[in-house]
Amino acid sequence: MWSWVLHRITGVAIFFFLLVHILDSVVLNFGPDAYDRVIGTYKNPVLGLGEAALVAAIVFHALNGIRIILIDLWSKGTRYQRAMFWIVVILWAVLMAGFLPVHLHNAFTEGQ
């Protein structure tokens, strides 16, 4: 149940990011300078935190997506679904532990 709720929430969050992403890519039509300026506005700590949340959402969604595929297609998938959920959580924590310090350091020092 909770893995499904999280999967939904992260899925919707990623969807809204994609909307923004499509919009900022459209700016490319107005030339590289305009694009650079729009992308430049992303370089502040607040959006830095947003990016951290985005990566957290994508990593969870990706890992849990693999878990769901295994549940559906691997004959023992449903039996190990709970264990696989914890593996997803642990993998997610490990990946985020590697990513967050570097990213937050960059987000808060860059542009200063």
């Binding site: 149940m1 893995s3 499904w4 769901i68 549940i71 559906d72 449903t78 039996r79 679904q81």
Partner: peptide
């Protein structure tokens, strides 16, 4: 695959399976 059904079944059927 929310597994709610498997948890609810009073007969212990592995429904999601």
């Amino acid at each position: 695959t929310t597994f709610n059904c498997t948890e609810a079944c009073p007969r212990g059927i592995q429904i999601t399976q």
